[in-house]
């Protein structure tokens, strides 16, 4: 390996290690109970998972599609969506404040409220 290659390899390894540490930090469970449902940068709903009744909310998307968000026994998840990738559905329930449920095709985000926000 040339000297430059070694430097680049070391930098890549450093970025990788930092990313692993941050990933562990991000995937931790959060004690926060308030959630927000945001679409295209606009706040649509806020709920407190401790007090919210079990319900299903159908959220239409700009392209004519929809996401169906379900609140059930203190958890929230995207139950169905007609987006092509279905990633938001397969992410399951919202667990971490750093890792929101995201539906990229419909620009929808379900996340825990930030500290101190309403």
């Amino acid at each position: 390996m040339t000297k430059q290659a070694k430097i680049i390899a070391a930098a890549a390894a450093a970025v990788f290690l930092i990313a692993v540490i941050l990933s562990v930090y991000i995937l931790r469970k959060t004690p926060e109970n308030r959630i927000e449902i945001v679409q295209d940068g606009k706040l649509l709903y806020t709920f407190n998972l401790n007090t919210a009744e079990n319900q299903s909310i159908r959220i239409p998307a700009a392209d004519g599609g929809y996401n169906s968000v379900v609140i059930e026994d203190g958890t929230v998840r995207v139950e169905t969506a007609d987006c092509p990738d279905q990633t938001c559905v397969r992410m399951g329930t919202l667990k971490s404040e750093h890792l929101p449920l995201v539906c990229l095709p419909h620009k929808l985000i379900v996340r825990f409220a930030e500290e101190g926000a309403a």
């Binding site: 990788f16 990313a19 941050l22 940068g41 995201v102 985000i109």
Partner: peptide, 14 residues
């Protein structure tokens, strides 16, 4: 998405 919160995915993606 007009929110920086998706940046939390960056470490996982990296």
């Amino acid at each position: 998405m007009r929110t920086v919160s998706v940046a939390a995915y960056l470490p996982l993606l990296l």
